[in-house]
Design a protein around this nucleic acid. Sequence first.
DNA 1: TCCATATTTGTAATCCTTACAATTATGTAT
DNA 2: ATACATAATTGTAAGGATTACAAATATGGA
Lengths: 132, 132
Amino acid sequence: MEKVRKLLESKNIRPTYQRLKILKYLTESKEHPTVDRIYGVMKKDIPTISKTTVYNTLNSLVEAGVALPIIITGKEARFDSNVMPHHHFYCEKCGKILDLKVECEHFKKGSIHGHSIKELHGYYKGICKNCL
Amino acid sequence: MEKVRKLLESKNIRPTYQRLKILKYLTESKEHPTVDRIYGVMKKDIPTISKTTVYNTLNSLVEAGVALPIIITGKEARFDSNVMPHHHFYCEKCGKILDLKVECEHFKKGSIHGHSIKELHGYYKGICKNCL
DNA sequence: TCCATATTTGTAATCCTTACAATTATGTAT
DNA sequence: ATACATAATTGTAAGGATTACAAATATGGA
Ligand SMILES: [Mn+2]
Ligand SMILES: [Mn+2]
Ligand SMILES: [Zn+2]
Ligand SMILES: [Zn+2]
């Protein structure tokens, strides 16, 4: 919990109870949760929490560079506290999003064809090992 | 126009006037248009066209494998009639989506870590050459 | 403690997309 | 050509994720 608090303070984000819990859950979870999922989990500890707070907090974390939204389905965003460049696998059957450790020479580039690169996103869609 | 008709017929999609026009525009446009954009352009030729028809048609084209939705911002889908694997560049300033011709060894794979791959999507986010 | 400011909360509004039913068009058999 | 069954189009309503907003609450410093 101290690590999470330090992380927030280093980004000048006030470490409120809601924010600490949300970021802690995000760092410990490997499931790239949706807002609804985060909201549901948070309610156990903070029954009064509002979904707007979840949205506000996630937006703050993203803006501060501590989290990343993962846009794949276009239905709902999912969130990742691992902001190091990495690829994902989206299973069309179970809906899980898995981290992939794949080499990608494109991560290294700062520009391409004259366009300035800020982020690179790569993901596969298919059926995961478990669902096959 | 005959090419577009043939394409639709090959996929067993009835070549109605609306569908022909929409697919024709999609194949000739390089801008990866939104539904609203397509709707606006179609209205010039077909003033009575409904936005639902645009949605229906695009869904049919996607299902038939003739078009692909491009999900980047999470706000609104954009569409591409080029279904050959290729990467994109999204400009955060002007909102344009550009095609990128980049080599990617990952396109060749059929599976990864035991997961069965159906699609690979890759895109950069940043500031395009024109906006720099 | 007091106060200014930031955060949280609940509700309403917004925007994209889909559901649905009525109307219109299409293709085929007579 | 006509009649009929089926499919597509249209307009409106509903759904779902996200944001806007203002009131209530919490925070941190003087
Ligand atoms: Mn991840
Ligand atoms: Mn493209
Ligand atoms: Zn799966
Ligand atoms: Zn640009």
